[in-house]
Design a protein around this nucleic acid. Sequence first.
RNA 1: GCUCCUGUGGUGUAGUCCGGCUAAGCAUACUGCCCUCUCAAGGCAGUGAUCCCGGGUUCAAAUCCCGGCGGGAGCACCA
Length: 514
Amino acid sequence: MAEVNTIPLSTQKSELESNFPELLVVKPKQDRTGLPPLEGAEQGKVVTRFPPEPNGYPHIGHAKAAIIDEEYAKMYGGKLIFRFDDTNPENERLEYYAAIKVGLDWLGIKYDQIKNTSDDIELIYKKAEEFIQSGYAYVCTCSKETISKNRREMTDCKCRAGDLSQNTKRWKDMFGKYKQGDAIVRYRGDMHSENTVMRDPTLLRIIDEPHPIHKSKYRVWPNYDFAVAIEDSIDGITHAFRTKEYELRNDLYYEILDKLKMRKPKVLEFARLEFDGMPVSKRILKPLVQEGKVSGYDDPRLPTLEAMRRRGIVPEAIRKFVLSLSFTKSDTLAPFDTLESFNRKIIDSTSIRLFMVTDPVKLIVKNNNVEKIEISNHPQKDMGKRNLQIDGSFYVSGDDAKSLKSGDEIRLLELYNARITKTGSEIEAEITDNKFKSEIPKIQWVPVRNAVKIEVLIPKILFVNEQFNENSLEIKQALVEPYYLELNVGAEIQFVRNGYCRKDSANQVIYTHK
RNA sequence: GCUCCUGUGGUGUAGUCCGGCUAAGCAUACUGCCCUCUCAAGGCAGUGAUCCCGGGUUCAAAUCCCGGCGGGAGCACCA
């Protein structure tokens, strides 16, 4: 070997080429774009699913899941099933079904089928009966506390030893005699398993709360593990993606399907997506909404889809962003920066340019000789022009005003150059010429006569070190050109030298990003 | 505590399964220049990683093995 290494590389190569050409074939290791290939995926046969519980408003986490589900289906020419996992009436509401669907449509996710797990309850009952009949499950009437204690201590309870007739009778009683909390169906797993999930987990339980769709038709409801496994299998799912915290439940998932002799999808996990200082959990968000610390679930500081839409984040940016995070299990606290960057590149070409002034200071041009000016709405794209009436009185931003000294020459953007003759609370200036000079400061302005007053909502980070940031929403007063009034709500605007904003209402914009 | 997962520049990732083609690619952030009647977008260049640490295997390790350490998750009649 050492001897081989003394031979020049080129010689080694030619030796190999003549003797063992197959060794030189380079393995396919080229850079990929998008998601990594799926194990065991066949072109045209992949079926994925997006299974949210309708228990809240959709957020960036839903977006990640849905986009991954859709992208993989697309990548393999397969299908995407949009399924509401609505098996806990206590948490679910009709408005959430709608909100999630609206969010998904906004994201541009195309699914081939939409369904509710709750529509398959009868079928799930059949599977449960099959389980009970074959002894893979039993009905347990122990208290919550006892069950929890037994699971921790790995000890069986007396219900576990119950025979078929007892279980059959108890199963019947779950639909009538028993009260909520009295009895549950448990999987006969392994009370000594190292995986706590396998220590006889719950499969079905009684919930009397009426279901948003089925009202009081059912009161025995499958829990997540049982419902998902069965649904995925019968829906023909080939690849089921879920977030990492479900990983321990894989054993259960596969075992349920194994015992039921049902087809097994491949389950894969990905990291949860959350932004730093922008929690998605209902536990944290709900009190904020209730206490009025945020204006609602569409408050622009929130990572909900509705909030991001209002703020001016576009779906394409979210998709690019999610894809840039790839499919990994490593914990990510995502960089909002990157999302903003993707967004900026997309909306730049569709954002109308307007002038906005904050902390206004008057600037009077003594020898104004312009009455009207026409300005392009976009530097490159043809987005029309707007007219501005000029009378020599302008507002400029306080920041700009502060830096001006007598004798300075400035350019009022798109208008003319002027020399400052007086500073202070009201600035005075005189026109010098109208040649474009790259070296003088260029500042934006608004005519005093018909300036429009608006509010700019500037969302900041919601939580700093787990603490609610009381200054997370800055509201700035600003003056803009009258043309603003002609724009539709929802319009993306780039206020020159200020940043991108989305028109939220007649007199309010939300600051999207720089 | 137990079990599982995870660890590549400031940040997010590619490469890790099948060790050499790249002493690490891309994006973002930052800096500078060009372009531009914007501090945007676009173009170019640059800063920045001994691939968590320590051993081992090998001619060769981010990639394989062993041992540490850090981070996260689960341990519900929620999903």
